[in-house]
């Protein structure tokens, strides 16, 4: 547990947060390397199944991030996504999924420093929560993706 390194999956929109994360790098800002960034066209493109799949495949925490409201490349994709997350969070909470492991954020292409802060704080909070084995233990071990230790 002491040397537990959380795996964080980040679903980010290509226009804002992906560019923002790029800026973090070009600005030489160091941040936790626990995050795997997956680029999608828009937060509105993020199917809620991505979240469940990520947990099942070994993620301990999830970041979903895109453009600030009124800043969407597709005008309103992020606002549609926001509604969906309100509903999805409620449902996940009701079925007992640990919603403290799912983090939503708006990070613009100019907010390289915010991205670093976001990742660092998510990694710290998930490290505190420990690995999300409770979720993956519901899969029989012989077919568990990646053979996650139980």
């Amino acid at each position: 547990m002491a040397d537990f390194e959380p795996k964080i999956t980040a679903f980010v929109c290509t226009w804002c947060t992906y560019a923002g994360a790029d800026l973090t790098g070009t600005s030489r800002i160091k941040y936790a390397s626990n995050v795997r960034v997956l680029r999608v066209p828009c937060t509105g493109r993020i199917d809620f199944m991505y979240v469940l799949q990520a947990f099942a495949q070994g993620a301990d925490g999830i970041i979903v991030s895109g453009c600030h409201p009124a800043d969407c490349h597709y005008t309103s994709g992020n606002l549609h996504a926001r509604r969906r997350w309100v509903v999805f969070r409620k449902l996940l909470d009701f079925v007992g999924v640990d919603t403290r492991r799912i983090h939503f954020a708006w990070v613009s292409a100019a907010e390289g420093a915010k991205w670093a802060d976001l990742v660092n704080s998510v990694v710290a909070s998930v490290r505190e929560l420990g690995p999300y084995d409770e979720y993956r233990q519901a899969i029989p071990s012989h077919i568990r993706p990646g053979g996650v230790a139980a």
């Binding site: 409201p69 309103s76 606002l79 549609h80 926001r82 509604r83 969906r84 309100v86 708006w106």
Partner: peptide, 16 residues
């Protein structure tokens, strides 16, 4: 359909 529309005032207290 409630999820194919939005308002600018939708809840976003859970978003950083």
């Amino acid at each position: 359909y409630a999820l194919s529309t939005f308002t600018t005032g939708d809840k976003d207290t859970f978003i950083r």
